[in-house]
Simulated scan of single mutants.
Amino acid sequence: MKDLFLIIGAPGSGKTTDASIIAKEDDSVTHYSTGDLLREEVARKTELGKLIDSFISKGNLVPLNVVVDTIVTAIKNAPTQNIIIDGYPRSVEQMQAFDKVLSEQNEVCLKGVIEVKVSEQVARDRVLGRNRGADDNEEVFNNRMGVYLEPLEAIIKFYESKNLHFVINGERSIEEIVMDMRALINKIKSKG
């Protein structure tokens, strides 16, 4: 049984950076960014990649079945016992579909959903300051932030009801955030 941790947070919250540092420093952890998994498909210029790109380039959500299939395949093929996926779920429908898939199998156990919490202003300053690509502009940021915030309350309530929701303050140094996230993951794993 593989242990799965989901990391959620606003665009620019640092969730991908935090998770990738943990995976780099711990051989028992594999990290996948939902965005990276989808962008890899786009880079391969497959038909699926073109479909994904038509949504990502506008800051919109990729269709549910595409995302769930992509993530489940990545988890099952992960080379380690512990998996961190950041940027998922991003909608109530994604959450429900993923929960259904997890409940129908016994290979993966969701151990925790960690929210890296930052203010909208901090998120905006980080995203517009990083200039990583064409989608790092004000209009796309506003759309992505809206897409993130709209279902957030329902997602948090759902995982709180299962005692799986945890919060980390994302407005500190990367070192502090990573240290807290690593400690939280180890504490959750040790509970069995």
Rank of each mutant, 00 (worst) to 15 (best):
Leu6Ala: 07
Glu171Thr: 06
Tyr32Met: 07
Cys109Ser: 13
Phe158Cys: 03
Glu150Val: 02
Asp69Tyr: 06
Lys24Ile: 01
Gly87Val: 05
Leu102Lys: 03
Leu48Ala: 15
Lys111Ile: 07
Ile85Cys: 07
Arg126Trp: 11
Asp125Ala: 14
Leu4Glu: 08
Lys15Pro: 15
Thr34Gly: 10
Asn77Cys: 11
Phe55Lys: 15
Leu184Pro: 02
Pro151Gly: 04
Thr30Val: 07
Val92Ala: 08
Asp36Tyr: 06
Arg172Tyr: 04
Val68Asp: 09
Val116Gln: 01
Leu38Ile: 11
Phe158Leu: 00
Tyr32Leu: 03
Arg130Cys: 05
Glu107Ser: 14
Leu128Ala: 13
Glu176Ile: 06
Ser20Ile: 01
Arg144Thr: 08
Leu37Asp: 04
Glu40Ala: 15
Lys100Val: 12
Gly112Lys: 01
Asn106His: 12
Val147Arg: 06
Lys189Cys: 02
Glu41Trp: 01
Glu40Trp: 10
Thr70Met: 14
Gly146Pro: 00
Ile114Met: 13
Leu64Trp: 04
Tyr148Trp: 04
Leu37Pro: 02
Tyr32Asn: 08
Ser13Cys: 14
Glu107Asn: 12
Lys24Phe: 02
Val108Glu: 12
Asp99His: 09
Gly170Val: 07
Tyr32Gln: 06
Val66Tyr: 09
Lys2Asp: 11
Gly9Ala: 09
Gln121Thr: 14
Asn169Asp: 15
Asp69Asn: 15
Leu61Glu: 01
Gly14Ile: 12
Ile75Tyr: 14
Arg172Phe: 03
Thr73Trp: 04
Phe166Leu: 05
Glu153Ala: 10
Val108Leu: 12
Gln105Tyr: 11
Leu61Phe: 08
Asn106Gly: 09
Pro151Leu: 06
Asp86Ile: 08
Phe98Cys: 05
Ser28Arg: 14
Arg172His: 13
Ala123Trp: 04
Asp86Trp: 06
Tyr148Ala: 01
Glu139Tyr: 05
Ala123Tyr: 04
Glu47Tyr: 05
Asp26Gln: 08
Gly170Gln: 04
Ile174Met: 13
Met179Gly: 06
Glu150Trp: 02
Ile185Ser: 11
Ser119Met: 08
Lys111Tyr: 03
Lys157Trp: 02
Leu4Ile: 08
Ser161Cys: 03
Phe166Ala: 01
Leu48Pro: 00
Val62Met: 11
Val29Ser: 11
Ala74Cys: 13
Phe5Glu: 00
Glu115Thr: 00
Asn142Lys: 13
Gln96Thr: 05
Val140Lys: 02
Lys58Ser: 10
Ile75Asp: 10
Glu25Cys: 06
Ala10Phe: 03
Val68Met: 11
Asp36Lys: 09
Ile168Asp: 01
Tyr148Gly: 03
Lys111Ala: 08
Asp27Ile: 11
Ser20Tyr: 02
Glu104Lys: 15
Gly14Lys: 11
Asp53Asn: 15
Leu38Lys: 02
Val62Tyr: 08
